[in-house]
Amino acid sequence: MEKFNDDTFLARWLNNELTAEELTKFEASEDYAAYKKLTDKSLLFEAPNFDSNKIKASIMKNKEVAVTKVRSLYYTIASIAAILLIGGLGGNYFFSDTNTTTTYYATQVGERINFELPDGSIVDLNGMSKVAFNPKDWDNNIRTLNLEGEAFFKVQKGSKFTVQTKQGKVSVLGTQFDVKDTENYFAVNCFEGKVQVDKGSAKEVLTPGKGIQYFQDQKDLITFANASPFWIDNQYKYNNVPLQAVLLDLQNVYNVTIKTKDPNKAKRFTGNLITNNISKALLTITKPLNLTFSITKDDVVFIKENSPNE
């Protein structure tokens, strides 16, 4: 497959903006025919028919009807209370906020969604994660959102962009980063640009290829070479990552529930998560950590310590 050094090359080609030299070279490449065909053939598509007169009639009929939403006093109090609370606690959670102006996205186990924020930034939300933000703030260029779980952000250039989690605040000075926030574990990886992580009173600035993880308040700095988080391509590789975080991914991949005894959560795992065979996956994770597992019929996995006399 043709590799492009320039991230707008094909767009310029389509718009006849290539230099003669670029064009000649591209036309000689093996992919040219495929690109030519797909762009030509896509011209044949049409959107489904739109009955504009019917909608027009309906608009003309409905436009005079008042549709003002009645907001109860309760909501007004609730939203003010929420704002005060946030101020008081220095940024704790609005996930329980009933304010109707907040937009939520949430994923179930094993589900993954991607969506665009009002400024065009893109979020890939991993399983069992939640994002909440207020589009009104975004319209006023206050780009803040709340996250529980894990998400990958491709941020549009612009003013400050902040991700607030229970365990810390991540501010973007640049463009692509991954945040993972689960019980006791908080990790941020920066893929492009610059990211500032505020945890408690500590501040870290991450540059591309650098990450940071906090586990039970122990801090590790990470370096990596991949261009996007592994989970985006359904690959999972770990380097000294808490077992708990690995098991969370495993639950997402195989759609199972995992039960462990608490002490196991302190262990750390290095290696890959196999994504096509749950028994093999569990074996590669549990064996090196001296653990055993069992799977019940209703997809519950139990993981426990090897008893010393076995």
Partner: peptide, 26 residues
Amino acid sequence: SISVKAVEKRMHLALVKLREDLGRNI
């Protein structure tokens, strides 16, 4: 409400992605 450059990048990526997905089916 994005820049022209951002549109061009998305267009370029869209084409690369389509090409990949279509694979040998040309």
